[in-house]
Design a binder for these strands. Sequence first.
DNA 1: TAAAATTTTGACGCTAAGTTAAATTTTTAC
DNA 2: GTAAAAATTTAACTTAGCGTCAAAATTTTA
Lengths: 219, 219
Amino acid sequence: MKKKISKATLERMPYYYSTLKKIEEADGGKHIFPVGEKIISSSELAAILGFSPEQVRKDIAELGQFGVKGAGYRFDRLRRAIEKVLGLQYRWYVAIFGAGRLGSALAYGDDFQRLGFTVTALFDVDENLIGKKINDVKVYNFADLNSVAKRKIIDIGVITVPEDSAQIVADSLIQAGIKGIWNFTAAKLTVPPEVAVVNENLSMSLMNISCRLSLVNSK
Amino acid sequence: MKKKISKATLERMPYYYSTLKKIEEADGGKHIFPVGEKIISSSELAAILGFSPEQVRKDIAELGQFGVKGAGYRFDRLRRAIEKVLGLQYRWYVAIFGAGRLGSALAYGDDFQRLGFTVTALFDVDENLIGKKINDVKVYNFADLNSVAKRKIIDIGVITVPEDSAQIVADSLIQAGIKGIWNFTAAKLTVPPEVAVVNENLSMSLMNISCRLSLVNSK
DNA sequence: TAAAATTTTGACGCTAAGTTAAATTTTTAC
DNA sequence: GTAAAAATTTAACTTAGCGTCAAAATTTTA
């Protein structure tokens, strides 16, 4: 059985990952480090990310052993381990629900592609949008979700509809067997435990800023 | 001196707030609760939000005393206290940097308006966009930030530019005296301590989903 | 008037996570 | 070739945040 990785560590993993990726791109795959294999040390990562070297070591230790004592971590193995723990070793297929401005923006966004996510469908209820293509992806009628989901793999559903409809959409996703939900509405979705929901609650973030601003800036 | 509110509590505040708002709208300001003043109990809030009543009480206790023993909390005072701690008692002025698809979508979004935030400007470097209006808000030349910031209040800067330019934009914001940053890029911004940064890192969220999906769904 | 409901206050205990320290191995330098 | 330096590994310690529980106080309701 896999040992569980702590929440705090997991939240830092994307930072390690993107740092490694940038380093990899920067030196074009060359071996800039001393030993035969490409190596990177905890203190080097720490310096880039603003963490302490101890923290970096403890985080990486949770993933396994990739280190060469006296030198650092085996670069490629480390990167692959992080990819694995983040689920990036697979390609994931995404459908966007709500083909409005936000949904379209996401369909065009390159965040998806770069990380190995593919947008395969958009859904809407607006007759004017259904049948159109957005960034070469077709907009389907939301009512046809089940039949589309039979033909195409959909791993993740992105909800960008108005808040009132969010739970309805979520219920439909679950019924269609979709196990991942990226929720851009303020709705607090109720889902079975095996479904992974990530909330991108823009209103929350706004309140977070205003909260912190009003502490400093007394206006 | 204000007593500090715990992080976990603060993160639940937006949920309490939106719940209270919904209840307020639903009963149209009528006194549906027993005593002269409108009242809501911890168990009632807990039931709606899926928290335990004890948790609700402890959270609210950090804000002050609004309770009537044997009845519940004074609705209006509670709402106002939450508004205050979230910084929603003020109107905040927002500028969006990057008038692309995401920036535009945010400019059109009603999250801002509803919470008392006002979008007063967009900025871009694209000659084709500068001078245009998006949802009735003008797109300025990014080079003119300082002069615009002198004429208009900008409390919060939203960064929706490409990742490579994010730090440059952030630096300019800080130089223009803007104290709040809502960062939609994957860049890890370096800012002075008095500046409040909230990261809406879409790539991170994606990795969060894929991570959790790969735990359950072994593909 | 008594019982029920609910806030208030305080104490307890647990867990997660950062920090520190010691041991081990490899590398580097002389 | 040997010793010192560097870095991971492993384990133990410490802390603090926070959820839970329990008792006290007060108001409402029957």
